Simulated assay, not measured.
Amino acid sequence: MENKEYIDSGILELYVYGLLSETESEEVATMAKNSTEINDEIIAIEKSIIALSSSFSPFHSVANYEKIKAKLELKHAKVIEMKPTGNWSQYIGWAAAVLLMIGIGYQYKQLNLTSNQITNTENEKIKIEKELQILELQNKAIETSLAVVRDVKNTVVSLGGQAVAPGSSAKIYWNKETKVVYVDAAGLPEPPEGMVYQVWALKLNPLSPTSIGLLDDFDENNQRFFAVNSTGDAEAFGITLEPAGGSLTPTMEQLYTLGKV
């Protein structure tokens, strides 16, 4: 066993307190003779106990105190073998020192527990704050959607499913005065990876499509309600499925929904 491990094991304190067996005491004494580090640690422990004994044993006589001190003092850097005694009053100070050490250890443990609880509380607080922010954003999105749906100035254009996806549907909310356009895409399936829905404002004669936006982050938009670019001149609206980033012209084979104003 390394010296540090031997010192940290607590056996030196038990040796100084006289709580080891005769065999164990002899082993410690031998270790101390062969190791300056262990010998110095024993000296330090004994000096600490002398100091603690003087403060925790107010009822000792001067003669008893000097006897204890004489037994603990080292001369010529040699370890004094502690001999058991029948006078237990001499060990009251030592017992007090042990209790003090135990108390300090307990308080340190409690301090660590309290520190961990504070850390956990702070982490929980941060988590709750993030969840509240998400809820606020969701509530704001719902309020926006409701305001658009309830606005009597909006023209509602229903888009029906086409050959590629007959079950698809969508709605356009278009304010012709402000030219603002919203898309309710709740009736569209989630686009495949690497694809995106693109919204088109159409002139019919001749057919002239104009892109007014992409329905990005489709899977993250729980309401499936999107604001797209404004338009003031449209006779119909259509939605196609295009490669990520969109296309300059609509891919008619991927026309999902279409509806006239």
Rank of each mutant, 00 (worst) to 15 (best):
T144D: 02
T144H: 01
L146C: 04
L146E: 14
A147W: 02
A147C: 05
V149R: 15
R150E: 12
D151P: 09
D151G: 12
K153M: 15
T155V: 13
V156T: 15
S158T: 13
G160L: 09
G160D: 09
G160P: 02
G161F: 07
G161E: 13
V164C: 05
A165D: 10
A165G: 03
P166L: 13
P166A: 11
G167H: 12
A170I: 10
A170C: 12
Y173A: 15
W174V: 13
N175G: 07
K176E: 14
E177R: 02
T178P: 03
K179L: 01
V181C: 09
V183N: 02
V183Y: 00
D184M: 01
A185N: 06
A185Q: 11
A185R: 05
A186D: 13
A186V: 14
L188W: 06
E190T: 14
E190I: 07
P191L: 08
P192C: 07
E193V: 08
E193P: 03
G194T: 12
M195W: 12
M195R: 15
Y197C: 00
Q198Y: 00
V199E: 09
V199H: 08
V199N: 03
V199W: 05
W200A: 02
W200H: 08
A201D: 11
N205D: 07
L207M: 13
P209I: 06
P209L: 04
T210W: 01
S211Q: 04
I212P: 03
L215D: 01
D216R: 14
D217T: 08
D217M: 06
D219C: 05
D219L: 11
E220V: 08
N222T: 13
Q223G: 10
R224Y: 08
V228F: 04
V228A: 11
S230Q: 14
E235S: 06
A236E: 09
I239Q: 02
I239K: 07
I239M: 08
L241W: 00
L241R: 00
P243G: 04
A244Y: 01
A244S: 14
